[in-house]
Design a protein around this nucleic acid. Structure first.
Lengths: 351, 351
DNA sequence: CTGTTAGCGCTTTCAT
DNA sequence: ATGAAAGCGCTAACAG
């Protein structure tokens, strides 16, 4: 079973050589109009499908690229995928997405699979890790073009695209301080794990800058550290985290949440015990997911240009793939933007 | 540039034939321990990566499968992906995800790419369409194993997995009727487009069953029909749709939203004008996204076993791939479950 | 335990 | 405008 017609089959049936059929398939070189017609007809009849394996093997490129993401359930990943895809399909490339489920092991397997199947390049948008980076390094030895998106990876022959999460974190915190808050909590990561989380570092840095002592008691991550590398922070974490903060003797008057979902969970927790946002607790999120402007109260958050990051990553990658020489590293850090809504500044309406 | 070591390179360097190196790489056949060590060392040194194209070409299978989804921004897709992946990786297969962005054209390109690159099978979880189905048919002629997930596709050599959306839609509507509602709106699709949307058909059917006349005025889709095949319905559509319904002379007393995001948007709209859920308008969603239990009020919705659908689809596919004969069609429709929360029945708390 | 042969399906290069 | 030859990198099948 599973017998697919090959160029040779078509050729035999038409009475030409495989080379002629190849010319028809690829629309390259001269083929007599009559021959072409005959070939096309037989191709149709035999339901010909070209063999990308053989083709790629011979041509030494597949016109495919791999995109590795840690997770797919959040708007960030979805928008990155769309951005990358737009650019790639326009240029005739096919994108294969691999999902690592935030596991370093699965991430490594994705790298290997993609490399084995000879994608022409790879965009890596997983969370950075020591082991993951080491793996990437070995692939680079094989001269595979790679672009890192929204994650650290330093290599002279790798491009880098990200939003300025650090600055975004600063702006969000600055905003709360300007509103008079001094006791500002953070939900989404424990301090000991936060070294790689730029937006959290921005929070810490801004507090310090204003002479506000960092208070570990009001920095909360997920309850139990079940997995080593915390993935995307959820509304559940926001809800639980806020519950905890509200139970303290002196709860914070404002909270910066790691992302919008976490922020929404926090708002739920606040409203559930009959407190008000922002009067009792002000909340800032991060990402500006579509939902953020439709919640009550609408969420103050930091917008990051996700789609654009995807597009630029794809462009960087194609440039690198199509380059004759090994290109020097390109870096691009896009600005974030604080969007002030009613979860920090009470406006016309508030629940 | 981009010169990767081949089996032949390793073999030459060690002083054996490529076949011996192949045996080491694949851990097949006998190789002397010393030889193996030497080969392994050189492989490491030369950073060997096997060529999946050559391998697949020779072996006539790639141990990869393709998963085509329309969209990736919603929890449904994310969970399907996780379910499929779990089963596949456990069995040594690699999964490549292609995203069609709800476009029939992109979907067709995904099919072709995957078929060209000789995936061993395909799981199709896009929205069904006439053209899309026709395309799938041609692939089946090439004997490519295919499983349809959550979308119609009738073919004797294709498996089918879905949740019982129709029954779910009935249950949701029944619930509202039991609560005394007679004027029940629907947000998420216009009646003229709803033929393929089972949960909507369940709504219509249940109204009829109870002798409630279907009222087109309170069935709303997206404002302007920009795209022919409406994709995933968003909170924005819910918000706008509800705004419209609230502006009617006689607004519905209950609304069944196409999915949870739409439902949440609707709730926002209701609260924004100072009305209450469920006292003024009761809302039911569909899907039971994680957020649903954390909203205020918590959302009554219909749970569908998404993860399980992914797992079963993957199992069906592997069975088909590894079968010697062409298997008959397998079908599996999983039950949904109505989850009653406070957006239909006022409990202890309500905003 | 290792090697030889052949060929998977395609395209590059050179001929005609 | 078409064909012949060779080989991309790998492995199945059969020696030895």
């Amino acid at each position: 079973m599973r017998k697919t017609a090959t160029l040779a089959d078509i050729a035999a049936s038409v009475g030409v050589t495989p080379m002629t059929v190849s010319r028809v398939v690829n629309e390259s070189g001269y083929v007599h109009a009559d021959t072409r017609q005959k070939v096309l007809r037989v191709m149709q009849e035999m339901n010909y499908r070209r063999n990308g394996l053989a083709r790629g093997l011979k041509r030494q490129r597949t016109e495919t690229i791999g995109l590795v993401v840690g997770d797919v359930a959040n708007p960030f990943a979805a928008e990155v995928i769309r951005g990358v895809r737009e650019v790639l399909t326009a240029r005739g490339y096919t994108m294969f997405v691999c999902v690592s489920d935030q596991s370093v092991k699965e991430e490594a397997e994705a790298f290997e699979s993609l490399a084995d199947h000879r994608v022409d390049g790879m965009i890596v948008a997983t969370r950075a890790s020591r082991k993951g980076n080491a793996h990437l390094m070995t692939l680079l030895d094989a001269n595979l073009p790679v672009v890192a998106l929204g994650r650290d990876f330093n290599h002279p022959h790798t491009d880098f695209v990200s939003a300025d999460h650090f600055k975004g974190g600063c702006d969000a915190t600055e905003h709360l301080i300007e509103l008079g808050h001094r006791r500002i909590g953070f939900i989404g990561i424990k301090q000991s794990y936060g070294a790689g989380l730029k937006r959290f570092q921005g929070y810490l840095e801004t507090l310090r800058k204003h002479g506000i002592k960092v208070n570990e008691d009001i920095i909360v991550g997920r309850r139990k550290g079940t997995d080593q590398a915390p993935g995307y922070s959820t509304e559940e974490i926001g809800y639980e985290g806020m519950k905890y903060l509200l139970g303290l003797r002196k709860p914070p008057s404002a909270v910066f949440a790691r992302n919008d979902f976490t922020a929404l969970g926090a708002i739920s927790a606040i409203k559930q015990i009959g407190r008000r946002v922002p009067q009792d607790v002000a909340i800032v999120g991060f990402d500006d997911v579509p939902l953020a402007s439709h919640t009550s109260p609408p969420l103050t958050t930091v917008f990051q240009p996700t789609h654009e990051q995807g597009r630029i990553a794809a462009e960087f990658l194609l440039r690198r793939i199509e380059a004759v020489q090994n290109l020097p590293r390109a870096e691009r850090v896009l600005p974030c933007k604080l969007i002030i809504r009613e979860s920090t500044v009470s406006g016309t309406e508030s629940t």
